[in-house]
């Protein structure tokens, strides 16, 4: 089993909110992704067993939603908004700066498996551009100085084994 007891309990809790079990697919995928960091066929199978619906229905839905990574990512997923409001305020240069700082290209994971860097569409934080999302948390009105501090903090907290939360 990939999903742990906490995740399974959370999914069961979500299930009772709906008269149709299939509606719990997205909440279940969200719970699974939060635990594992990404989704795969084995997870779809486990969810289908919990929800008592066909595996294919879970896999079909999951394949549509791009928010859930479909292959392993680093411990922290850095998503840079590259849409228009952020782009006008330097999102491209922000991506370059992150590539330089992390020593990886967009789409890659750092060798220490700490960070994966991707760029995404509008995250709904346009008045605080440029911005990034790391895991569940938004970081806004970014400057070089802020980026430096955010990355340092994340490196440090992962050394101490502390989890970040929003």
């Amino acid at each position: 089993m990939i999903l742990n007891d906490i995740s399974i309990a959370k999914i069961r809790q979500k299930m009772i909110c709906y008269t149709v079990r299939k509606s719990a697919i997205l909440p279940a995928l969200t719970v699974a992704c939060r635990q594992v960091g990404h989704l795969n066929n084995e997870i779809y199978r486990e969810i289908s067993v919990i929800l008592e619906i066909p595996y294919l229905e879970v896999a079909e839905a999951a394949s549509f939603y791009t928010m859930f990574p479909k292959k392993p990512v680093g411990r922290h997923l850095i998503q840079v908004c590259h849409n228009i409001s952020c782009a006008l305020l330097g999102a491209d240069s922000l991506i370059s700066y992150l590539e330089e700082k992390l020593g990886i290209k967009k789409g890659e994971t750092s060798p220490d498996n700490l960070f994966t860097l991707i760029s995404v569409e509008c995250l709904g934080s346009c008045t605080s551009a440029p911005m990034i999302q790391i895991d569940d948390k938004y970081y806004e009105l970014l400057t070089r100085e802020k980026i430096d501090r955010i990355l340092d903090d994340l490196k440090e907290s992962s050394l101490n084994g502390k989890e970040s939360s929003f």
Partner: peptide, 10 residues
């Protein structure tokens, strides 16, 4: 009343 979260699709 229930909050339902999406999957990042515009």
């Amino acid at each position: 009343m229930t909050v339902h979260t999406g999957g990042g699709a515009y």
